[in-house]
Each structure stands twice: as C-alpha cells, then as structure tokens.
Design a protein around this nucleic acid. Structure first.
Lengths: 223, 223
DNA sequence: ATATATTTTTAGATTAGACTAAAAATATAT
DNA sequence: ATATATTTTTAGTCTAATCTAAAAATATAT
C-alpha cells in the first residue's frame, strides 16, 4: 500500500462520491468541477491514479475506482466521519461547522489514532449528518434517508435535513423542539390526513402535519 | 497574516527550537540537520522566509526569528502540545507514542478548533512531556526542569525523564510505582544522606536515595 | 450527414520544494 | 600567513501539481 499525497487522496474521495461507491464511470469535467480545478488537471490526475492501479481510466470514456482505490477512499471517508462525530459530540461544534475541519483531519496518517478515536467515541455507526461510517475493513452499511412522510410507525429517525428552508417552517420546528441532529420516534399516523405524532428527543410528544413530515428528512436508526 | 505551507511552518518551528525562542542566530547547517535535508534546501528556505519578513537572515551569518515568525512558531507549538495532551489524556496513548501524530495535527488550520480543544482539555498549561503550552497570545510561562535532588521539600513535580537508562534503575523505579508522567510530592529530605521521601501519585509514600533523585528529572508544578 | 458545440486530451509553462555539484566565503591549523 | 578544511551560497536539475491554449475526439442539431 503506497503513500499517497493529500491531493491524490482527495481525488479518490471525489471519485467515490461521484460514482456512488465506485459503480458508475466519472467523466473528466465532473471530476474537475468537484475538485474545483480544470479539466486538464483532472485529466492529469486520472492518468496518475490509473498508472498507480487505483482507478480504471479509458480515454474519452471516464474513470472508475478499482478495488484498492475504493478501499483507500473508504478509509478516508471513515476518518472524515469519525472526526466529525468527535467535533460535534466532544468539542460541541454545530454539525454545520465541522466539514472544513474534517477535510483537513481526514488526511492524518495513523491507523492507531483512528482505532483509538473510534474507541473513544464508542464505535459510532453514523456521523452527525446521518451518513454511515465505514468500519475498519471499509464496509459501510446502507443508510436509508427518507422524509418522515415515508416513514413507518415505530421507526426511529435522526433528523438530518429540512428540505424547505422557509423561515416560518424553521421557526415552527424550533418551537416544537425539532432541530437538526435530534432523534424522533414515529408513534402514530392519522389515517385521515396523514399527520404524525412523534416522540422528540425521547420524551416530549409532538404532532406534525403531512406537509411538515414531507419536509423533514431522517436517517432511519436501528431500534 | 499570510498562509504558510506545511514546510514553511516546520522550518519556523525548527528555528524556534534551535534558537531557544528566537534569541540566538541559527546557522544553515544546523537548520538543515534539524530538518533532515541539505544545506542548499535550508538556505533556499531561509531566503524565502526572510523575503516574507518572518525571519532575519544575513548571508554567511545565520538566521533568527522576527516577531511575526516567532508568533507563528509559538502558535504551532501550542497546537502540537495541546494535541499531545488530547492523545495521552483522552485517547490513552503513551506519552512516547504521540510526537509523530502531533507533528501532523499541529498543521490543522482552525483557530476555533484549538479554542474548543483547549476548553475540552481544561486549559492545560503543560504537555505530557512537562513542556509548557503557550497561551492563545503566544505567551509561554517558564518551566523549571530539575532533578529531584535539586527540589525543595513541598515541591510537586511531574516526572518527565530518567537521565540514566540503566535497566536496574528503571526496574527499581517501576517496582516503586514511579513512571514517566506520574506526579510526586517531595515530603522530606534526610539531612544525613540527602535521601528523599516522596508521595507518589498522590498517596503511596516511597523513599529514594540521593543517587536516584539525581537521575529523576521533574517539571515543578504549581501547588 | 454534415456542421456546430462540447468534452477530453495534449503540449508547454509555472511554482514550491527538494536535490547535486561547484563556487565563494569563512574558519582553522601549522 | 598561507594552506586546508568547513560552511554557506549559487547554479542548474527534478518532480508534483497546477495552469492556459490548442488539438483531437465525441456528441448534438438541423
């Protein structure tokens, strides 16, 4: 396993995200866009990574991660997400402040550090944005992100996004104690209007209309 | 305040250590040695840093930190030492394992991160090696590192080094519960042979000869 | 099907940081 | 004081990662 530069690691990570896990072919322009650089630079890097056996690249067709490249990408994603958990849970960052810092921390090289950090955090399986954290072998469990309108009674969800940023909606959510990162249990769905009763944060019971439910995205947690 | 490269930061830090805080002139070869590179490279960097106004450099004489360069060096040292405290206290690293990792972590750019880390760690004033941690303004209080033979009754010290690595000595220290990083209180000095009674780790009382005391280096802690 | 537009690749230049080898300055020894 | 050794600097080369501009390949539209 070769030592990669900061930049090479970032390209592999971008390829992972753009190809949703190494499946699809990624074209030069999307890679360049995603890396905020020129097509020429992205093309150079595709050649380099292909040369190193980390990605497959056919001229004018596009690139895709090979197994070693995918593995490296997943290890970087694991580090990124573990650090995000640390920043939010231990250092009290808000979840919208942590991405840039984690972008730097994800490149720290020390398997033992990550092992001990994982331990310290209690082996979390999802990050503060509700995205799954790959385990030490690079295995990442599927995570369902759905709106509460699509949820089932009995589901427990982590609120990860509000799809409409209407300020009245945000204010209302605030007033009933629903915020990004909080956990909700779906208790009952009224058949007539599809409104929901929720347990918010494990205790308070709140009611929301179907419209609000449609705008609340959650990651379904194991119960 | 300009954005410096990883390498430039490391050179500034090396200059700080070699000149013990920016006082003495550092010559090209010692800098090159310390950075594990050639005199030519060190010379290139001295020119660059001088150009940026961070160090003073006269041909064939040597270099020294100017106030801005010293400030940057101290901020990096602060980060390095805070991360070392984190690694030892929170992630249970041994103090001899943390240097390399802290060398990487010290380059993470985020003042807010360091502020929150400092908070999380309870504003420590010394690192696991007994070296002082500069505050947010770059002020670093003097730390006395002395042998226990030079200590006074009533002193509390953090054991930071054993000057003789004789294995019988190390074994004996181990058997009486004295290890690197432990805290000792000097209780009494016998006038006749200058042997000492110590409270180790806050409770157990132990006796050591003058010879052993001479070999135990401590950082004196505020009491 | 051919012209036009888009995408991708190549070619050549640039910058930071490093290197080697040689030249210049300074220090040391007889 | 002169020769020798050491240290420092310069000159020129190299690599990774970037860029611009132009060429080549592919896709789209009439």
């Amino acid at each position: 396993m070769q030592q990669l530069s900061y930049t090479e690691e970032n390209y592999l990570k971008a390829l992972y995200h753009l190809s949703q896990g190494g499946e699809d072919l990624v074209n030069t322009n999307s890679l360049a866009d995603s890396m905020d650089t020129t097509a020429a630079s992205a093309n150079d890097m595709m050649k380099r990574l292909s040369q190193k056996g980390l990605i497959g690249h056919q001229k004018y067709k596009g690139a895709s991660l090979l197994s070693e490249g995918k593995n490296i990408a997943l290890r970087i994603i694991r580090k990124h997400r573990l650090w995000e958990v640390f920043l939010v849970q231990k250092l009290n960052f808000r979840w919208d402040e942590v991405h840039e810092i984690a972008e730097q921390l994800e490149h720290i090289q020390s398997p033992l550090l990550i092992q001990k950090l994982d331990e310290f955090l209690g082996h979390p399986s999802i990050d503060p944005h509700g995205d799954p954290i790959p385990d030490e072998h690079g295995t990442m469990k599927e995570v369902r992100k759905i709106s509460l309108a699509e949820s089932n009674v009995g589901d427990r969800g982590l609120v990860v996004a509000v799809s409409d940023d209407n300020s009245e909606l945000l204010q209302h959510l605030d007033s009933i104690g629903i915020e990004l990162g909080c956990v909700v249990d779906v208790q009952e769905r009224v058949a007539f209007d599809h409104s929901l009763s929720l347990k918010v944060g494990g205790d308070q019971v709140r009611f929301i209309s179907k419209t609000i439910a449609e705008n609340l995205l959650v990651t379904i947690l194991d119960t």
